[in-house]
């Protein structure tokens, strides 16, 4: 792909936004969430002690769960992709020992122009649900693609 124009972004938005392109189940082992919490520096018992009545995974644990693919099939290659950031929204605690389902869609596509040229940002969102279908959390991954010169 050559120089990116606004129409490329608009077409990508029309074609790809808000359509689930991946679904995956995740087992949440307690020993893994405890170690995750410990390495992050958490000291609260609700993240470290399985006997705690509110035992739960640390809030950003879902950011470590990846779907089978990060972008939809046939998504245009605007340039070299780099990890630009992560976002997490928490609605209900993720309980260790359960299995959750993650469904991925492209939540946003936008561009910014900086000193080094134009960059395209794609935000992939995984929505996580428990076995009862309750929406637990969202995890956003922001990928920045620099225009090929």
């Amino acid at each position: 792909m050559g120089m990116i124009v606004d129409q490329d972004i608009a077409e990508a938005r029309d074609q790809f936004l808000n359509q689930d392109f991946d679904e995956k189940t995740f087992v949440i082992p307690a020993e893994k969430t405890i170690e995750y919490a410990r390495l992050c520096g958490e000291t609260a018992a609700r993240f470290l002690d399985p006997a705690h009545p509110d035992f739960q995974a640390p809030p950003t644990f879902v950011a470590s769960l990846s779907g089978s693919r990060a972008l939809p099939e046939n998504f245009p290659r605007f340039g070299l992709g780099m990890d630009a950031g992560k976002g997490v929204e928490c609605f209900l605690p993720v309980r260790p020992g359960t299995t959750i389902t993650g469904r991925t869609h492209l939540h946003d596509i936008y561009s910014k122009t900086g000193r080094s040229g134009r960059m395209v940002f794609a935000v992939s969102r995984i929505e996580f649900f428990d076995a009862a279908g309750q929406h637990l959390a969202n995890a956003d991954s922001r990928v920045v693609m620099r225009e090929k010169s």
């Binding site: 995750y36 919490a37 390495l39 992050c40 520096g41 958490e42 000291t43 609260a44 640390p58 809030p59 950003t60 950011a63 990890d83 630009a84 950031g85 992560k86 976002g87 997490v88 929204e89 928490c90 956003d140 922001r142």
Partner: peptide, 25 residues
């Protein structure tokens, strides 16, 4: 790094519930 940020908040307010966190690398 994102986990460190949340741990910091919990050290400051142990009962704090994180509703959202957005992080730029």
């Amino acid at each position: 790094n994102q986990g460190y940020l949340v741990a910091m908040i919990h050290h400051w307010a142990p009962d704090a519930e994180i509703k959202a966190i957005d992080t730029v690398f």
